[in-house]
Amino acid sequence: MTGNELIVDYLTSVPAWYLATVEDTPEGAQPHVRPFSFAALQDGEIQFCTATTKDCYREMQAIPRVELTAWKPGRGWIILRGRANLEDRANATVREEGFKHMVALGEDWDDPADPRLTFFTIDDAEAWLCDIDGSWNPIEL
């Protein structure tokens, strides 16, 4: 299993995982964390889904540094950090999966081609599986 396959397997095995972005406010940089739940592999690359109308998208446009994490009992927690690449390169299959996933969450989309629905990847990524014993085990990407 490749590192990206391991990450997608982990993220899709939990109900939600958490993505942190940064907003540059007049008071200084402010981290924002919110739940996400869609991740899919396309040509060995992890595709994530959001909307161009959401704060997280605007924040990633301004400051692309992101970090995500999830915890699963018995498996420790996973961390993935890097730079959001907002170039939407999702193919029709991933776009359909993302659309269905978002609709199942209760979001309102016209169809998989809805221009608000967008996919992103993470460049210059680093990842670890961590455990309560303090270990940070690198995931080769």
Rank of each mutant, 00 (worst) to 15 (best):
G76I: 03
D9H: 08
P73E: 13
D123M: 03
E126A: 13
H32Q: 11
A104S: 15
D24A: 08
D133F: 13
R83A: 10
T53L: 06
E97P: 00
W109A: 02
T93Q: 11
T52P: 00
L11E: 04
Q47C: 01
G134S: 14
P138G: 15
I139Q: 12
G44D: 05
A90T: 08
P26F: 03
R116V: 15
E126R: 11
T93N: 06
E59C: 04
F38R: 06
D9G: 12
P26L: 02
L19H: 00
V33A: 14
L86D: 08
T52N: 02
I46Y: 03
R89C: 03
D114Q: 01
I122N: 05
N137L: 14
Y10T: 06
P31Q: 09
V22P: 11
G82F: 06
E45F: 02
L105P: 00
A20I: 10
P15I: 02
I63Y: 06
M1Q: 11
G3K: 06
E27A: 11
G98T: 02
S37C: 03
P15Q: 04
T53Q: 06
A16G: 01
P64L: 07
S135N: 15
A62K: 10
W109S: 00
W136D: 14
P31G: 06
D9N: 13
D124F: 09
R58G: 14
G106F: 05
W17E: 04
R81G: 14
P138E: 14
V103Y: 01
Y57C: 07
Y10F: 15
L6E: 13
V14F: 09
R58F: 10
A127S: 15
D43T: 06
P115Q: 07
I63T: 14
